[in-house]
Each structure stands twice: as structure tokens, then as C-alpha cells.
Write a protein that binds this DNA or RNA. Structure first.
Lengths: 118, 118
DNA sequence: TGTCGATATTGACGGCGATCGATGTTTGGG
DNA sequence: CCCAAACATCGATCGCCGTCAATATCGACA
């Protein structure tokens, strides 16, 4: 039985999750939470979105900034952005007609620290 | 079009991949390579396998050590192990009838360093 | 050599998800 | 007040993948 990327209610914050993978055997619940965060990142389009947003001026970008470099349709870009927001990697702030997305500080580092062995 | 976890020939080593995500906009090819590595980890069973192997005595475990704690069938465990070997996170060494799996040193840290922002 | 145990491979099934076109929603401007 | 622009949501399609039962392979041992 596959695991959906967006579990509805118990979206656990991976920032306060568990010890690094290699320290001790991870629990079933923690493995589910970490896997969900990794699934959110494990897509070429979403990796590029995170990268483009982080490297953009003022560290934020709107949908219109992403659609052309990604080469994807506008609904698809919005879908990926929703996944990244719900998984805690991006924030969304609407100003006028535009929606600006910004990287959540420390969110990537939280995942990285789970994988670090040293 | 979804991306398969196991691309046949060009399995790129994420250890020598690219700059961290947030330094500059990642290229399409690098995003594909990183996504493939993340996909290999983005599964609860595979995360638990990595964790159990790393926390095990002598840092290695055979299929029989994993089957019972994972609660999965033997073919499924072998399938996950194959994914982790082909993606460069585990090595396989067969001794007698048993197959022992071991964590590749630095493989997890390589992925972690791609996500680290500081 | 024949059997047994450990593991790998195959085939099949079911669900998740990446994608797009079409449509809905909201905001700003005339 | 209506239109246009930006974005979100919906519905549908289709390939990938996690899973298991069945089967194959491989090594040890009598």
C-alpha cells in the first residue's frame, strides 16, 4: 500500500522529528514522517522550484517566475507549489493578484540533519 | 510523465553532483539526478532498512535480519534492498547463503550536503 | 547428487501522482 | 460593474511503484 505525499491531518514537523537515521533504528511513525518530507522533495520540478526560489531576488518568486523556466503548465506549477507549502518547505503570501513563495528557513537543514552521519 | 527511480544506464553519483540547492538554480540534469537519489530514500521501509543496517552490529545486516522487524515479505525486502544498492546507499556482499548489506560511507552525507543551506 | 535454506527474480495487481485542459476564484483597473 | 490577469481547483489520463504469491537460483551439506 503506497503512502500518499499529502497525509491530511497529521502533518508532522520534520524539524522536531527524531534522531539521525544512523544513530538508532528509526520508529515506524518517524520513518513515515521523514519519508513524507523526502517525497515532497524527490521530484525534479520541485527541486528546481526550491532552487529557483532560493536563488531569486529577495528569496521569493511568484508562479509567473517559475512557469517559463520549468516548462510546465500553470496548473502543474501550482500543484507542486501546494505540495511544497503543505510539507513545510515554502510559504505563500498573496499580494494583489500575485502569490509569492518563499523558502522556510531551516526546513531543508532539518531534513539534512536527519541524514547526516557525522 | 513520472520519473522512474531506477534509470537504467546513467546512474549519476550524487556525491559528485552539484552545488547545494540554495546556492544557485540547479540544472535540469542535476535536478533529475538528485531527485532519483531522494526517491530511493523517500520510502518508509527503505528509511527503516538504512537505519536498521546502520544501527546493527558491525554495521551490516542480512535479509533475514530485516524481514521480521519490517513486517514485509521477503521479496519486498529484497526489492527495497536492490533499490538502495542501485542508488548507491548500500553495498551487498554475499557470504555463503547469506547476503549482507552495509551502508556506503558518505552516501547519506552527500545528499545532506546538497540540502544544507548554511 | 539431491535436498534444504536463503535470497533473487518474475508476474500481477492496485493505488499514488505528475501532467494537462477546462473551469472557478479573486483582485485590480477602466 | 464588468473585464482581464494571476492563480487555484477539478476531472481525467496514464505511467510508476509498493506489495505479494509463485518460481527460480545459488550455496551448503549429507
Amino acid at each position: 500500500m503506497p503512502m500518499p505525499v499529502t497525509e491530511l491531518l497529521p502533518i508532522r514537523d520534520v524539524t522536531a522529528c527524531c534522531a539521525p537515521l544512523t544513530r538508532e533504528a528509526i520508529s515506524v511513525e518517524d520513518a513515515d514522517a521523514v519519508a513524507r518530507s523526502l517525497k515532497a522533495l524527490a521530484d525534479p520540478a520541485r527541486l528546481r522550484i526550491v532552487s529557483i526560489v532560493a536563488a531569486h531576488d529577495d528569496q521569493e518568486a511568484c508562479v509567473c517566475d517559475l512557469q517559463e523556466p520549468l516548462g510546465l503548465s500553470q496548473p502543474t506549477v501550482s500543484h507542486h507549489l501546494k505540495v511544497l507549502v503543505e510539507s513545510g518547505f515554502l510559504t505563500r503570501s498573496k499580494r494583489g493578484t500575485w502569490a509569492y513563495y518563499r523558502l522556510v528557513p531551516g526546513s531543508l537543514d532539518a531534513v539534512a540533519s536527519l541524514l547526516t552521519t557525522v
